[in-house]
Simulated scan of single mutants.
Amino acid sequence: MTFEPATRPGTGPLRHDALFYRTDDDYVTGVRSFVRAGLVAGEPVLIAVPGLRLDLLRTALGGGTELRFVDMAREGRNPGWIIPGVLHAFVEEHAPARVRVVGEPVWPGRSAQAYPRCVQHEALINIALAGRPVSLLCPYDAVRLDVEVIADAASTHPFLIRDGDRQPSAGYGHPENVVDSFNQPFPTPPPSASTLFFESSGLSGMRAMVAALAHQAGLDREQVDDLRVAANEIATNAVVHSGRPAVARVWLDDDGLVCEITGSSVLTDRLAGRLPPSPVSDSGRGLLLVNYLCDLVQVHTDNTSTTVRLHMHRRAEPATGTAPTLGS
């Protein structure tokens, strides 16, 4: 997959800017200016930011029906779901009209485990939405986030905004190169991990192991079912595509449960699971569904294998939401 834009990224239909803010006033001023420009132009506006930032913007912008607010900490808890479930869904809903989105996928307190997938997400926007009529503003806390995070934001956004001044990013890199630079091997699973080598005939045993340990981890019934489905999707792909045995490792962590599956097939499509497949396609729905079901999905691939880690976190209250439409 090669990204060769006809024009400089950020000057075509897709506008993907990073807003570096230092105070709440900076944050509100930058977002409000962006949103108001969209409203004046008659563009639908989506605001997808986490937690207290959502409350801050609701107060500053008002709650008119022309604005849609989404809690990124919930809907974007798995960075792999942001493009298909938040951005692409909004673009398709209003196509062919131009839309405007405030999206904050990285914030102070975002887990270190999720961060590499966040950077890959930001880079992949430049491929997944290339040529689409979208103006996307991504706020970054320039005070509380590490300097490395700010540098990564500069590498994934063609234009940067500081103090109201929009300038091309000197650090912008080709999206594929950024994605590949974060394709790093995972830390070794703990010695306590339960391990199962399996072939296609052993999928039921793998599902049983995952379900039993999910119960032990304190996940609720819906989460147990979701993780079992997600693990089965990844495990099936691992043994069917390669025709060789695969290995599942499952362990409890502080948040809940981690299920890791390694197979001999090699995942080459950087956008796999990030965009809905064509309605006439017979494939491409599995990883999309997995991204929807899990709290975090990590992927590492090399020349001989692919490893997928599925994270499911304990929750204090039942989750709500609408299941994705995987065929559109």
Rank of each mutant, 00 (worst) to 15 (best):
T2G: 10
F3W: 14
G10D: 13
T11E: 14
P13I: 08
D17N: 09
A18E: 01
F20D: 09
R22F: 12
R22K: 09
R22I: 01
V28S: 00
R32D: 09
V35K: 02
R36K: 06
G38Q: 06
V40Y: 02
V40G: 00
A41H: 14
A41D: 12
G42P: 05
G42V: 01
E43W: 06
I47L: 09
A48Q: 01
A48L: 01
V49A: 07
P50D: 02
L52P: 12
L61E: 12
G64S: 15
E66P: 07
L67Q: 08
D71T: 02
D71Y: 08
R77V: 00
N78G: 00
P79Y: 10
G85T: 05
L87R: 04
H88Q: 12
A89V: 13
E92H: 08
P96W: 11
A97C: 10
R98E: 11
V99C: 05
R100G: 09
R100Y: 11
V101N: 01
V102Q: 01
G103M: 15
E104R: 12
P105T: 11
P105F: 07
R110M: 13
A112C: 11
E122D: 14
A123P: 06
L124C: 05
N126H: 15
L129S: 06
A130F: 06
V134F: 00
S135R: 09
L137G: 00
P139R: 03
V143Y: 04
R144V: 02
V147S: 10
V147E: 14
I150C: 10
A151K: 15
A151Q: 09
D152W: 11
H157K: 02
P158E: 12
F159P: 02
L160D: 06
D163R: 10
Q167V: 13
P168H: 01
S169N: 05
P175I: 05
E176M: 13
E176R: 14
N177I: 14
D180I: 11
P187S: 12
P190R: 01
S192T: 14
F198H: 02
S200K: 00
S204Y: 01
A208R: 15
A208Y: 00
V210T: 05
A212R: 09
H215G: 04
A217Q: 07
G218D: 15
L219R: 04
L219H: 03
R221Q: 15
Q223D: 10
D225M: 06
R228N: 07
A238G: 07
V239I: 11
S242E: 10
A246E: 03
V247P: 13
V247R: 13
A248R: 09
W251S: 06
D255Q: 09
V266F: 04
A272Y: 10
G273S: 14
P277Y: 08
S278E: 15
S283Y: 15
G284L: 15
L289D: 12
L289G: 03
V290C: 07
N291W: 03
N291P: 01
C294N: 09
L296H: 00
V299M: 05
H300T: 07
D302F: 12
D302K: 08
T306M: 06
T307Y: 09
R309T: 03
A316N: 15
A319G: 10
T320W: 07
T322D: 02
T325L: 15
L326H: 03
